[in-house]
Write a protein that binds this DNA or RNA. Structure first.
Length: 833
RNA sequence: GCCCUGGUGGUGGAAUUGGUAGACACGCAGGACUUAAAAUCCUGUGCUCUCAGGAGCGUGCGGGUUCAAGUCCCGCCCGGGGCACCA
């Protein structure tokens, strides 16, 4: 199955059509058809519609009827689960294209080093925020690691509080704020808007205009990342005043970069007494601070802990914080200046890409430019053939250059954005249930039979992306009765990452004499250069990879240049000299030396973007697929990350050869016999089956492998090997070493596949011990080891143990206070004196 | 800063319910076979001391509970990952 195959993405497009044609109904708490919504609009307007949407204006049925087609289209777009909206993207002018966040670092493209700026762009979005509550609440019932659950929870970031509108002096406008602490409203002594807030321009007074313009320009010039990283306290008053609705006092309105335009309403009521950021701001700009919560009873509580008694707050005085919050919410609603509300950190997700490789949107535009979805019969809408995969340069995708694709016979035009990778990956597990179905994304019977995924193994890097989108899509499909389950993945295991060494070279941010300038890691450190960016490169170019001295020689630099032609004439400087345009100029005292550009090395994930992937094919070619597979399991617990260490794969390789040697000698002669097995042999076999059965259940594959090693070591010590032992052992080992076990299965005379043989059950009766070796401790310190019959009673053991020679010497002159016997485990003698 | 993890020999790791710490492997040392090498096999290998029998210490650090703690409790330290001015 391939998500980029039209027979698959037909159904991805189909689901997108469904998303486009549904909205989220907050009363029914599920997705409902847009057709129903439009009917309601025609009957009674949107007054009674409780939907998750960005439509704010209320209209009546009469108004709806009077709207133009375009107006109706725009209003409905505010409800759709897939909708068109505007947002900022990373724009690289030089490349004429949009870049993803991980292709950008320090405001420049990692591929070409060109500048990247934020630029608004109209794109498609998924209204995932509609499902925020359910995505949070339903985490409860999932058998997922706590780490993933908490990271989804914090990513969604639900917080409860209140929306309050503040009137503005001499203006009919008001400012909407969101606060989790409505109780502290008596302490709200000023307001802060995000510098990008739409009211800033309108409200700024003449006197403040210059200062405000300057500040807004300063903020715009900073990238989002810099703005967050610096955490500087900056801001400027805009000259206007708001009225605190509870104290009726005039409070100044400021703008400041610490208020984010995308969270809440992009404006806050600042309560310096109970928020560190507001406090820091107030102190810096000398704004009034009124203490409103008395926390003397809670000395260890921080400003955000909702404990304490209200003070300086009129009718709230003396109340507990929690009660004050609900009372203020009630009061605010009575006064019609706001309401209790919920906010999320989660944003709707950008669903557009301006790239060739992706599913085309099943969406077209009519002659008026209104969007509509294609009929299911018109799907799949296939990606058109082309040789030109470069983006158009104006920010549009390469598809926009293909007239035959863009222009439809009826004069309509097609959407030219493509979908991101998460589109196809959000539902593929459903297709696995019925991969060849031509009429449906998966047959109803199949889905009802398989339900959802019992065990999903995947990397933790998908914690908040893939795993959240898939849950969202699944819930949507559940809402419209296409899947019976609420969640896609019942149990989740995060396998650790096999890490690799990452090699990078430093590049100065500023060009030198117009040339890109690369520096040796040693020089960067020695000179204390901070104005350089580490650019990851292919580990194949690097000499002494994985060691401290990893570096690029001239050949390596040439390979690097061939790989990144932008840097063909760049300067490569190391302590030995300078390499440029194929010429090496050695530094003073370094004559006859060669370039040795030391690279920056660290351990990190293996990733295409870090160019440090170890090719499994090469490992398989050298050691075989079984050894590779078992080695990965043997490295350690599945959930743990560990660096790729090729040294110990030999141990697993050796084990497989030893296992083989139980069947055939070095000349390929069969060595196993049809003889009956001894109790000892059965004990080894059944002990191994038991251990492996139990360890598979708890996903402890590394200990399974060591159980096999122990079994083989043990069997090798015995004089002969028996078919009756080997046969079940081969089946047990088959999931771990599928190829070798298949061959040995055939060698034992079987005809079918070992992978169809049923997994052996173990027989406890072979595992019964006649005698048990007891460790004997004196005061908790192990002093001796002694065999006792397995059926010895507590009393027998207590009596016998004190008579042992090996124990006697420790007891001389001491009083035995107590003897603790844990049957089949250990004996501890407590003495005193 | 907040959240989640983890810390055990030279190394990767094992110890599932409080009950023999270091299974299994790598590495290292020694030996067998071999003209030699590879491969294979055997022995040893936590640290320190040692009269060679053993003794002491030992699971990041400091306390505690217990006959008994890698495991439970309290307080710290360090590494890895995620989120990060979220009002």
């Amino acid at each position: 199955m391939n998500t980029s195959d039209p027979s698959y993405y037909k159904w991805t497009q189909y689901i997108v059509v469904l998303l486009y044609n549904h909205y989220y109904d907050l009363e029914e708490e599920k997705a409902v058809s847009i057709v129903k919504l439009v009917e309601t609009f025609a009957e009674e307007g949107n007054r009674n519609v409780k939907a998750f949407c960005t439509q704010e204006e209320i209209f009546t049925a009469e108004q709806w009827a009077s709207f133009t087609t375009q107006e109706k289209h725009d209003i409905v777009m505010n409800y759709r689960l897939v909708y068109k909206g505007s947002g900022a993207v990373n724009w690289c002018e030089e490349e004429g294209t949009v870049l993803s966040n991980d292709q950008v670092k320090d405001g420049m493209s990692l591929r070409t080093g060109a500048a990247v700026v934020q630029r608004p762009m109209v794109q498609w979005y998924l209204r995932i925020t509609a499902y925020a509550d359910r995505l949070t609440n339903d985490l409860e019932d999932l058998d997922w690691s706590k780490a993933i659950k908490t990271s989804q929870k914090t990513w969604i970031g639900r917080s409860e509080g209140a929306t309050v509108y503040f009137n503005i002096e001499n203006s009919d406008k008001n400012i909407e704020v969101f606060t989790t602490r409505p109780d502290t409203i008596f302490g709200a002594t000023y307001m802060v808007l995000a510098p990008e807030h739409e009211l800033v321009e309108l409200l700024t007074t003449k006197e403040q205009k210059d200062e405000v313009d300057q500040y807004v320009a300063y903020v715009k010039a900073k990238s989002e990342i810099d703005r967050m990283a610096e955490k500087k306290i900056t801001g400027v008053a805009i000259g206007a005043y708001a009225i605190n609705p509870f104290t009726n006092s005039r409070i100044p309105i400021w703008i400041g970069e610490y208020v984010l335009k995308d969270y809440g309403s992009g404006a806050i009521m600042a309560v310096p007494s109970d928020d560190e950021r507001d406090m820091a701001f107030a102190e810096k700009f000398n704004l009034p601070i009124i203490k409103v919560v008395d926390k003397t009873d809670f000395p260890s509580a921080g400003p955000h802990d909702k404990v304490g008694k209200m003070i300086n707050s009129d009718f709230l005085n003396g109340m507990e914080v929690i009660d004050a919050i609900s009372l203020v919410c009630k009061k605010v609603e009575e006064m019609k200046i706001g309401k209790a509300s919920v906010n999320y950190k989660l944003r709707d997700s950008n669903f557009s890409r301006q790239r060739y490789w992706g599913e085309p949107f099943p969406i077209a535009y009519d002659k008026e430019g209104l969007s509509y979805t294609l009929d299911i019969d018109a799907l799949p809408l296939e990606l058109p053939q082309t040789d030109d995969f470069e983006p158009k340069g104006d920010g549009r995708s390469p598809l926009s250059k293909i007239d035959s694709f863009v222009n439809m016979p009826n004069g309509h035009t097609r959407e030219t954005d493509t979908m991101p990778g998460v589109a196809g990956s959000s539902w593929y597990y459903l297709r696995y249930m019925d991969p060849n179905n031509k009429d449906r994304f998966a047959g109803k019977d199949h889905i009802n039979y398989w339900q959802n995924v019992d065990l999903y193994v995947g990397g933790a890097e998908h914690a908040v992306a893939h795993l959240l989108y898939a849950r969202f899509w699944h819930k949507f499909l559940h809402d419209i009765n296409l899947v019976p389950t609420k969640e896609p993945f019942k149990k989740l295991i995060n396998q650790g990452m096999i890490q690799g060494g990452i090699e990078a070279i430093y590049k100065l941010k500023e060009k030198t004499n117009g040339f890109h300038h690369f520096l040796c890691a040693g020089l960067v450190k020695a000179k204390g250069i901070t104005d350089a960016t580490a650019i990851p490169l292919d580990i194949k170019f690097v000499e002494a990879y994985g060691s401290i001295g990893s570096h690029l020689n001239m050949e390596g630099i040439n390979k690097f240049i061939a790989w990144r032609p932008t840097y063909a004439d760049a300067i490569f400087e190391c302590s030995k000299g300078i390499y440029q345009n194929g010429k090496f100029t050695s530094a003073k005292g370094q004559e006859n030396s060669e370039s040795e550009l030391v690279t920056h090395s660290e351990i990190g994930k293996m990733s295409k973007s870090k160019y440090n992937v170890i090719n499994p094919d090469e490992v398989v070619a050298e050691h075989g697929a079984d050894a590779f597979r078992m080695f990965e399991m043997f490295l350690g617990p599945i959930e743990q990350s560990k660096p790729w260490d090729p040294n110990s794969i030999g141990g697993v390789s050796k084990f497989i050869r030893r296992f083989w040697s139980l069947f055939f000698d070095q000349d390929g002669k069969q060595v196993f016999t049809e003889e009956a097995a001894t109790d000892e042999e059965f004990k080894i076999l059944h002990g191994t089956i038991k251990k492996v059965t139990e360890d598979i259940e708890r996903f402890s594959f590394n200990t399974c492998v060591s159980a096999f090693m122990e079994a083989v070591n043990h069997l090798k010590k015995l004089p002969s090997s028996k078919k009756v032992i080997l046969e079940p052992l081969v089946v047990t080992i088959a999931p771990f070493a599928p190829f070798v076990s298949e061959e040995l299965w055939k060698a034992l005379g079987n005809t079918g596949s070992v992978h169809h043989a049923s997994f052996p059950a173990y027989d406890e009766s072979y595992l019964v011990e006649n005698s048990i070796s007891y460790p004997i401790s004196i005061n908790g310190k192990k002093r001796a080891l002694q065999d006792f019959p397995a059926d010895a009673t507590k009393e027998d053991l207590e009596k016998q143990v004190v008579g042992l020679d090996s124990i006697q010497k420790y007891l001389e002159g001491k009083n035995i206070k107590k003897i603790i016997v844990v049957p089949k485990r250990m004996i501890n003698i407590v003495v005193a004196g």
